[in-house]
Design a protein around this nucleic acid. Structure first.
Length: 609
RNA sequence: CGGGGCGUAGCUCAGCCUGGUCAGAGCGCUGCGUUCGGGACGCAGAGGUCGGAAGUUCGAAUCUUCUCGCCCCGACCA
């Protein structure tokens, strides 16, 4: 491909709104152009990379035994009502507008395809003899993101590979899950991404187990917990740490102390000259449950250390477990329906504490409530917390002595986010470090969540109808591209991994008007192209420096510089983007050398089978 | 959805507070000339109803109100 025949729109200017490196560089290289918030055009250069990512993903999916299909973007909303995800997804589910009763109002843009694939499965997967089966598609997804950001890292429409597997046994699911997991590792390795697989929350998609594949970079929005000895890796949405040891400082007497207008942890700490880790944060929630028409609710008090944050996933589970236990004592069907946990309103807090918001403590609460104590609080001594009296806090509050940490309505659980420096839950004593990261892939064991609600069953050997057991596996292709740039760039521009570079080789003809130069450049170009290498020849009549800067910016991994002076000395120059070495080689050997470098690099990334 | 910021040429921005030669610069683009191995220079050009609407005023890019869009922080996030 000749540069002059292609469409490349590089720019010297750094776009003002772009903060993430990938965003900045994708704009400067002209790989993408923003059309509106969260929607980008992929210009020819960017599209080539995206296609290469797609090709790698497709190859590895096929290798893992998945079969490609394509499902529609337009979904009837009824399908989503079947699984209850119209409510679960809320505004993320994009709906078409229109006059009342119009078909448009009954149509949504697909944010993911569990419902559609399950609809296919219930129609055609009727026998255990057909199982297991895995299918995938590579297709645009639509989500009503409230706040698109960081270029193509978070958009309202994006390209996703989504795969779904169907099974008759959990063992079969486990086997395919592992196969997909391995395929994902190969995909990210081949794309040159420094990734790590972590335990993850499954979120609204549901299911039993899941792993996320994360690229560690500050441009990411997720935070993962990794131990230094690598014995543990999890998303902080889920991460746990070793329990903290009992503090055995002697217990002092409880003392009430006036703290006028000091409500937040910071204010109280400054006022009392103590540290956040000595504080007990007392949070009040309302747990609602039961059928729509007969909603009941229970107040839940959660305690975490002042320097810790509540993890609402964990608190949710702990609170529901505790509620289930208490219901069990008085009801025959203890499992609470559709429980939902929210921060309590002011009136509830005032009734419970007898004080204004900001002065709650666990020791003298009024009325009926459930108490969930974080493990880190349960081992504290002489904590500081609200006095349940406006304008007052108490010091030297001790769990077990001053408020109960046992009993029917109390549980001690892990309900906080891990913090940097916590120890590995594996007992190795290794410290946990928190790292920002981008989620590029996610695999889930769904179980029967969708097959049950959508009545997707098969007949087993005994002729009995059973719900299909499912797994699902997603990869964000645009994110792979962007995170590759996040991971591989310098001040001059992008440093593409060979596998997903828009072109593998750039030939820089420095003096395109010189016949010798262009003839040599063309010959090399043609020979490489014939060998199946993606080669771009910069034939523009521009100054050398200008072309070098462009070359660095777009980051083609191998550069061959051909100039009048070099040819006079009988050499052309071969340079790797990102390296400093310049090889001066005879023009006649250039093609062979370049082929060798490209092949070697692809093999290093694991393209060889 | 809450808080903050910004919409002026294809791109990056100045001008706005204090209304009146304020329709401006740089990059990019076109033409000519010089230059030519790490983003050259000179000269001459093309290009904008100052996001939109309403209002205040003799007069609005500039002040007011509304509205649309975009960005950042937070909430949310298969």
């Amino acid at each position: 491909m000749l540069w002059s025949n292609f469409f490349i729109t590089t720019s010297k200017e750094t776009p003002k709104d772009a903060t993430a490196a990938s965003h900045r560089l994708m704009l400067r290289t002209g790989m993408v152009r923003q059309l509106s918030a969260g929607a980008y055009s992929y210009l020819p250069l960017g599209f080539r990379s995206l296609r290469k990512v797609e090709k790698i993903v497709r190859e590895e999916m096929n290798r893992a035994g998945a079969i490609e299909l394509m499902m529609p973007v337009l979904h009837p909303i009824d399908l989503w009502h079947e699984t209850g995800r119209v409510e679960a997804m809320g505004d993320v589910l994009l709906r078409l507008g229109g006059p009342e009763g119009d078909w448009r109002t009954q149509t949504v843009l697909g944010p993911t395809h569990e419902e559609v694939i399950t609809d296919i499965a219930r129609a055609y997967l009727n026998s255990y003899k057909q199982l297991p089966v895995s299918m995938y598609q590579i297709q645009v997804k639509f989500r009503g993101e409230a706040r698109p950001k960081s270029g193509v890292l978070r958009t309202r429409e994006f390209l996703m590979k989504d795969a779904y597997s169907f099974h008759d046994t959990v063992d079969s699911l486990d086997a395919v899950y592992q196969k997909m997991y391995d395929a994902y590792c190969r995909i990210f390795a081949r794309c040159g991404l420094p990734y790590v697989a972590v335990e993850a929350e499954s979120g609204p998609i549901g299911g039993d187990a899941s792993h996320e594949f994360m690229v560690l970079t500050d441009a990411g929005e997720d935070v993962v917990a990794l131990t230094e000895n690598q014995d543990y890796a999890a998303n902080t949405e889920r991460a746990v740490s070793a329990p903290l040891p009992q503090d055995d400082t002697a217990m002092a007497d409880v003392a009430e102390i006036e703290t006028p207008n000091q409500r937040t942890i910071d204010e109280v700490c400054a006022f009392l000259k103590t540290e956040a880790r000595q504080m007990i944060k007392t949070l009040v929630y309302t747990l609602a449950y039961g059928p729509d028409k007969k909603r009941e609710s229970k107040t839940v008090v959660a305690l975490v250390r002042g320097d810790h944050d509540v993890n609402e996933n964990k608190l949710d589970r702990a609170a529901i477990a505790l509620l289930t236990k208490t219901l069990g004592a008085e009801s025959s069907s203890p499992k609470p329906q559709a429980p939902s946990l929210d921060l309590a309103d002011e009136a509830t807090i005032k009734a419970l504490t007898g004080a204004d918001v900001g002065f709650a403590g666990p020791h003298s609460l009024k009325g009926d409530y459930l108490l969930v104590v974080d493990q880190a609080v349960s081992v504290m001594r002489n904590g500081v917390t609200g006095a349940n009296k406006t304008g007052y806090h108490v010091q030297n509050l001790n769990p077990g002595r001053d408020f109960s940490i046992e009993g029917e309505t109390v549980s001690v659980s892990d309900i906080r986010n891990v913090t940097d420096g916590d120890l590995s839950p594996k007992g190795s004593g290794a410290a946990i470090r928190l790292r920002k990261s981008i989620e590029v892939g996610h695999v889930f064991k769904l179980g029967t969540k969708y097959s049950e609600s959508m009545k997707a069953t098969y007949l087993d050997k005994n002729g009995k109808a059973r719900p299909l057991i499912m797994g699902c596996y997603g990869i964000g292709l645009n994110r792979i591209m962007a995170s590759a740039i996040e991971a591989h760039h310098d001040d001059g521009g992008i440093i593409w991994p060979m596998s997903i570079a828009p072109f593998q080789v750039l030939i820089l003809a420095l003096d395109p008007k010189e016949e010798d130069v262009m003839n040599t450049a063309r010959a090399l170009h043609d020979e490489l192209e014939a060998a199946g290498i993606d080669v771009l020849l910069d034939d523009r009549d521009e100054r050398a420096g200008f072309k070098f800067k462009d070359a660095d910016l777009i980051g083609i991994p191998v550069r061959v510089t051909i100039g009048r002076k070099g040819l006079a000395d009988g050499i052309v120059e071969l340079k790797r983007r990102g390296g400093d070495d310049i090889d001066k080689i005879a023009p006649g050997t250039a093609a062979a050398r370049v082929k060798e470098v490209v092949k070697g690099e692809l093999e290093r990334l694991g393209a060889g089978k």
